[in-house]
């Protein structure tokens, strides 16, 4: 049994060496697929990273009733801080409000109006898991119901747009990724089928000598796995060069890099899985 297994594994290696051109084509197909996946994943984690960075700025601005004094406003401010999802807050008194006004409009509000009419308020940061337009709307509604709160504002339109853009991008990436995966599997299986077709005479002889389908299939499957491994190693080599380049450019571009602990096993597993599925599909179609 062990001797047969060793023989079949050896046959898989041999088949790879014998059919160099189809093997190279399959490995290159898997390499291209893995490169696209890796680059797409790189794009995804960067998009996600930037999106999280951007979402850090998501906040709810609250304006208190202009008739309330500072102490009463502080009480309301503290009660808002106790609401689920509010991470921290920044109390804004009339003086700070006037400074903010001046920063935006480059004019002193007292000079324009003669007095400071700006209401007291607060900026509230939302916890990361609450940074979603619907959840933030619910929090804002809750704040609005508090007695003494005049107005709550958050960038719901912008957040909606960003969330929608990210969702569309992820859906598109999923569709493209699935299409690439299918094309890759079809190409690998067709390449294996070409090899099998070229060896149909040998397969017939093996059958007449008493070889089972499993005995015939296994070397092709091992060949597929090796082609997958070849494609994975090729992609890892290329990604390593890109990784070094990105590390060098890290000073100029701020990017999130995929950790090698994830990239190496991920590429090897996906590459070998592509080779395995492709070869199994190819050989199964032929040896029905």
């Amino acid at each position: 049994m062990i001797s047969k297994a060793v023989f079949l594994v050896f046959e898989g290696f041999r088949a790879l060496v014998r059919a160099k051109v189809p093997a190279i084509i399959s490995s290159i197909t898997i390499f291209i697929t893995l490169m696209i996946f890796s680059i797409a994943y790189f794009g995804y984690i960067n998009l996600k990273g930037y999106s999280l960075e951007f979402r850090k700025q998501y906040r709810i601005d609250v304006f208190f009733d202009a008739s309330l004094d500072r102490d009463k406003c502080l009480d309301i401010f503290n009660s808002i801080l106790l609401i689920d999802g509010i991470e921290q807050g920044d109390f804004i008194d009339r003086e700070r409000a006037a400074k903010i006004f001046e920063r935006y409009f480059h004019k002193d509000v007292k000079e324009i109006v003669g007095t400071n009419p700006l209401p007291l308020g607060g900026k509230f940061e939302v916890a990361p898991e609450y940074r979603d337009v619907q959840i933030m709307s619910a929090i804002a509604d809750k704040i609005r119901l508090i007695n003494g709160v005049d107005l709550t504002v958050f960038q719901s339109g912008l957040i909606k747009k960003i969330d929608g853009f990210l969702d569309n991008l992820l859906t598109l990436a999923f569709i493209i990724g699935s299409a690439i995966l299918i094309v890759s599997i079809v190409m690998v299986s067709n390449t294996i089928r070409l090899t099998i077709h070229a060896k149909r005479g040998d397969i017939g002889t093996l059958r007449l000598l008493g070889a089972t389908d499993r005995f015939i299939k296994l070397p092709f499957i091992i060949e597929g796995l090796l082609q997958g491994l070849g494609g994975a190693l090729l992609s890892l080599g290329t990604l390593w060069v890109l990784y070094l380049l990105m590390q060098y450019l890290q000073g100029y571009l701020r990017t999130y890099l995929i950790s090698p602990e994830l990239l190496i096993p991920g590429n090897v597993i996906i590459g070998m899985a592509l080779g395995l599925i492709g070869s199994y599909r190819g050989i199964s179609k032929y040896l029905k």
Partner: peptide, 15 residues
């Protein structure tokens, strides 16, 4: 396949 293993077959085209 297992039955064929008990037979020695020689083909005209050698195979």
């Amino acid at each position: 396949p297992f039955f064929r293993r008990s037979i020695g077959t020689i083909f005209q085209d050698f195979k």
